[in-house]
């Protein structure tokens, strides 16, 4: 069914005052927001900047705020949005704007570089490699689904509202840290780092990261809280500390 729909898209660069501009297009059944943006780019605004790649929800490039909610444009069907109202499309608010819908997310990659990488224990199989039981790797495999779309970083109020970029790594890197810390082969100790440099205590577990994750990773329940519990083991559990003294 062909319908006319209005889109309000953020236009502007980092040095100019931005504003929402309206575009009307004819939409067809099955269209996603990214299709509409491409249609506008092809026919009405050839200078509209938008980052995208796979159109399949796997590259994590087309993150934006659709009607105020962080989402992937390629995975948001127009039929999911309220009918008869303009659809607003804005860039991620937590990161510096480059132009239109494109933001500079390079801060995330700089954070990642500061995390000690995977360090496996010495090979223990006769052929000089390792053996891992599937049941030991199940937990970590959930974290490997992350596509680094940074929607969780965008919605996290510690970054978005409190601007604590210097003391908090954000949910994406809590997932990354959990994947490393819970890995059955990894022997690196990152718990003091998770407490101090990565600032896990700043998370107040309001689960917005989980709510926006397009891969449906249970970020708070399966990554952040288990890491918080490991930090409690090391730093906040007096009985465990006492027990460790006599170990």
């Amino acid at each position: 069914m062909i319908m006319n729909a209005e889109f309000q898209i953020w236009r502007g660069g980092k040095d100019s005052a931005g504003r929402f501009e309206s575009y009307s297009i004819e939409t067809t059944e099955g269209m996603v927001v990214l299709d509409a943006v491409h249609h506008i780019q092809s026919n009405q605004a050839p200078d509209l900047a938008v980052r995208w790649n796979c159109k399949a929800g796997k590259c994590g490039s087309c993150s934006a705020e659709i009607n105020g909610t962080p989402k992937l444009m390629c995975m948001t069907r127009l039929s999911e949005l309220p009918v008869g109202q303009p659809v607003t499309i804005a860039p991620l608010k937590a990161f510096p704007l480059i132009r239109d819908l494109v933001t500079d997310v390079s801060w995330n990659f700089r954070v990642k570089k500061k995390i000690p990488p995977f360090r496996p224990r010495k090979p223990d199989a006769p052929d000089g490699t390792w053996r891992i039981a599937q049941e030991d790797i199940d937990r970590v495999q959930e974290f490997r689904k992350c596509i680094e779309c940074f929607l969780c970083q965008d919605v996290c109020h510690v970054l978005r509202d409190h601007q604590q970029f210097e003391s908090f790594s954000g949910p994406r890197y809590m997932v990354y840290l959990a994947a490393l810390e819970m890995h059955p082969l990894d022997v690196e100790d990152r718990i003091p780092l998770i407490k101090k440099e990565n600032g896990i205590g700043l998370c107040n577990i309001t689960k917005c990261c989980t709510a926006v994750c397009p891969e449906e990773i249970r970020i708070t329940d399966n990554a952040i809280i288990p890491l918080k519990e490991r930090v409690v083991d090391r730093f906040y559990d007096p009985i465990r500390k006492l027990f460790n003294l006599f170990k």
Binding site: E65, R160, H162, Q164, L202, N204, I205, T206
Partner: peptide
């Protein structure tokens, strides 16, 4: 904790909704 931080302290009131300006130290 997650629920009452939102409902009683508006920290944040809801996802992607602005919160009152104040110093934030989380649970540290």
């Amino acid at each position: 904790r997650g629920q009452y931080y939102r409902a009683f302290a508006a920290d944040p009131p809801s996802c992607a909704v602005g919160e009152p300006s104040r110093k934030y130290s989380g649970e540290r």
